[in-house]
Simulated scan of single mutants.
Amino acid sequence: MPALLDFRIRFPDVMTEISLDDVKVDIINGGYDVVLRLGELDDSTLRARRIGPHTFITCASPEYLAHRGTPQTPSDLHNHCCVFYRFPTTGRPEVWAFKNSLQLTPIKPSVVLNDGEALASAALGGLGIIQAPSYLVSEDIAAGRLQAVLADYTDERGSVSLVWPPMSARAPKVRAFIDFMAERVSQKLY
């Protein structure tokens, strides 16, 4: 949202309508000019611009870790309160991704939430360990409010991309929005 303010200052005559639904929309039939997509993209006739990796951080509050201990491997998570995200499109809890791990037993969530910001708030409140997109928790980690764990194991999940119908980018205002947002969002991903 801070990037949107900067876009409005730079392009005051461009009317923007933002939909913040956490569902996969039909871009063409829904009448969208541009959509921000996370994860792997489907093959389609749409145009896309990858703007960065969709990286995740496994983390918890320092207070939680002081009380419960710090997991050293993904299998240690079976002894912790793990707070998961539930996808609104499928109704299923997210499966945490780990690389270089021989973990065979899925982690059982202690709490399941359907909002990314609530996920971060749960970790900040000491409810348990979360695995969240880096852009949701990186400022809290930098400020010491959250502490990353299992950094050597946490894996990427595709990319962050802007996607649009082929005809949309011909409009100068849409092209301006794509270029501006690609630059601004990519800064938050690294």
Rank of each mutant, 00 (worst) to 15 (best):
residue 131 Q to W: 03
residue 169 A to S: 15
residue 178 I to A: 07
residue 120 A to D: 05
residue 109 P to W: 03
residue 24 K to V: 14
residue 62 P to G: 05
residue 18 I to Q: 03
residue 179 D to W: 00
residue 124 L to I: 14
residue 41 L to T: 03
residue 64 Y to M: 01
residue 132 A to P: 01
residue 149 V to T: 10
residue 124 L to Q: 09
residue 132 A to K: 02
residue 123 A to L: 04
residue 73 T to V: 12
residue 126 G to A: 11
residue 70 T to F: 02
residue 174 V to I: 13
residue 17 E to I: 14
residue 145 R to K: 15
residue 162 L to S: 08
residue 101 S to N: 05
residue 125 G to K: 11
residue 151 A to T: 15
residue 83 V to Q: 04
residue 48 A to Y: 04
residue 180 F to V: 06
residue 178 I to W: 01
residue 119 L to H: 01
residue 1 M to P: 07
residue 143 A to I: 02
residue 143 A to F: 06
residue 22 D to F: 04
residue 188 K to I: 11
residue 157 R to W: 09
residue 170 R to M: 08
residue 59 C to A: 15
residue 88 P to V: 09
residue 156 E to P: 04
residue 15 M to F: 12
residue 162 L to V: 08
residue 123 A to F: 10
residue 64 Y to E: 01
residue 80 H to C: 10
residue 10 R to K: 15
residue 8 R to N: 13
residue 38 L to P: 00
residue 46 L to Y: 14
residue 7 F to R: 10
residue 170 R to H: 13
residue 111 V to Q: 06
residue 108 K to D: 06
residue 29 N to A: 10
residue 93 P to N: 11
residue 75 S to D: 13
residue 125 G to Q: 11
residue 4 L to A: 10
residue 148 A to M: 02
residue 58 T to G: 11
residue 142 A to D: 10
residue 157 R to Y: 08
residue 119 L to T: 05
residue 177 F to N: 00
residue 176 A to E: 09
residue 42 D to Q: 07
residue 158 G to C: 03
residue 58 T to R: 09
residue 107 I to L: 08
residue 89 T to N: 11
residue 45 T to V: 01
residue 119 L to Y: 05
residue 161 S to L: 05
residue 105 T to H: 03
residue 79 N to R: 09
residue 49 R to C: 07
residue 119 L to K: 13
residue 28 I to P: 00
residue 72 Q to S: 02
residue 132 A to L: 06
residue 35 V to P: 00
residue 186 S to F: 11
residue 97 A to K: 14
residue 49 R to Q: 12
residue 81 C to P: 00
residue 20 L to E: 14
residue 144 G to F: 10
residue 174 V to Y: 03
residue 47 R to P: 00
residue 34 V to T: 08
residue 53 P to A: 14
residue 57 I to D: 07
residue 34 V to K: 03
residue 128 G to R: 02
residue 95 V to S: 08
residue 179 D to E: 15
residue 18 I to K: 05
residue 8 R to G: 00
residue 112 V to H: 07
residue 33 D to Q: 09
residue 180 F to C: 08
residue 3 A to P: 01
residue 64 Y to I: 11
residue 172 P to S: 12
residue 115 D to L: 11
residue 144 G to H: 11
residue 122 A to E: 10
residue 143 A to Y: 06
residue 141 I to W: 04
residue 33 D to F: 00
residue 86 R to M: 10
residue 158 G to T: 06
residue 177 F to K: 02
residue 161 S to C: 03
residue 127 L to V: 14
residue 136 L to D: 08
residue 69 G to M: 06
residue 32 Y to F: 15
residue 2 P to K: 09
residue 82 C to S: 06
residue 84 F to L: 07
residue 62 P to M: 10
residue 177 F to V: 01
residue 86 R to E: 13
residue 155 D to P: 02
residue 164 W to N: 03
residue 39 G to I: 09
residue 159 S to A: 15
residue 50 R to M: 08
residue 154 T to A: 14
residue 144 G to I: 05
residue 59 C to F: 06
residue 95 V to I: 12
residue 58 T to L: 11
residue 183 E to P: 00
residue 86 R to I: 13
residue 37 R to V: 03
residue 183 E to N: 10
residue 93 P to H: 15
residue 116 G to M: 12
residue 141 I to H: 02
residue 108 K to I: 12
residue 88 P to N: 12
residue 148 A to I: 01
residue 66 A to M: 02
residue 87 F to C: 12
residue 190 Y to N: 12
residue 83 V to L: 07
